[in-house]
């Protein structure tokens, strides 16, 4: 090793920061799309057992496709770069979100729903005020799992020229033994791991804020 890892970081700070931010954007966009689709599918298929089974089977099939193959197969359809990257990552991200949203909604005590209906909440109010908040902690776990998974799979997107830190890992590995190759790979891997930790922490904070809000109410509690 000519340079030590620390010097490598210092020398390439600007590039590495930009790559990390790009990587973060890829993850956030993919997860956001997956959450939208997954939650929508979970809600849509709530009382339709057949539809629900189809959704779960399709998304678990997505997850079993080997990553390299999926990215590669998307090239003829979507070319290189952002298109196949986001598409593949969303496909991988759907299952945990869909699954946990369904589990969260199913876990709401039916008597609580019955009581909510019985005292005059509309179906939409029952969903928004009772089912969704009660399902939220379980949904959030799904989102956290998905986010961590996506941070790591996003590196493989370099295979289709995708944006992010994966490029450094791929090039570094391809010229292993060459000058600074190990540092290049190590630096990218460390940043991927750090990004994962940071995003997960942010989600945990979000969880605390949304969960804790229930407890912290004005002293005269009634007004919300």
């Amino acid at each position: 090793m000519g340079l030590n890892l620390f010097e490598y970081f210092l020398r390439n700070a600007d590039d590495l920061l930009e790559l990390t931010l790009t990587h973060a954007v890829v993850v956030i966009v993919s997860v956001a799309i997956a959450v939208t689709l997954g939650v929508a599918a979970a809600i849509f298929s709530r009382r339709k057992t057949r539809v629900r089974a189809v959704c779960l089977n399709v998304t678990s099939t997505f997850m079993t496709i080997p990553a390299m193959a999926l990215f590669g197969l998307l090239i003829p359809l979507l070319g290189l770069g952002w298109g196949p990257t986001i598409t593949a990552l969303v496909m991988y991200a759907l299952l945990p979100i869909l699954h946990n949203t369904i589990a969260g909604l199913d876990g709401v005590d039916p008597r609580v729903k019955r009581a909510a209906e019985g005292i005059g909440l509309t179906p939409v109010q029952v969903f928004r005020r009772v089912e969704l908040p009660l399902a939220w902690p379980v949904m959030l776990i799904g989102i956290r799992v998905t986010t961590l998974m996506t941070v790591s799979s996003a590196a493989i997107a370099a295979y289709v020229n995708g944006p992010g830190l994966g490029g450094d890992i791929f090039t570094g590995l391809s010229r292993i033994g060459g000058a600074g190759a190990i540092n290049q790979v190590l630096a990218a891997v460390i940043l991927v791991v750090l990004l994962g930790i940071i995003l997960d922490l942010l989600l945990q904070v979000l969880g605390l804020l949304t969960g804790a809000r229930r407890q912290r109410f004005s002293r005269r509690g009634a007004a919300s």
Binding site: D109, V112, G118, L121, P133, A222, S224
Partner: peptide, 21 residues
Amino acid sequence: YVIQDAGLFPHRTVAQNIATV
């Protein structure tokens, strides 16, 4: 409407539960 085991909203305070209607 009162049911067995009350059916209170577990994520809302006593006051918020009572204030629902």
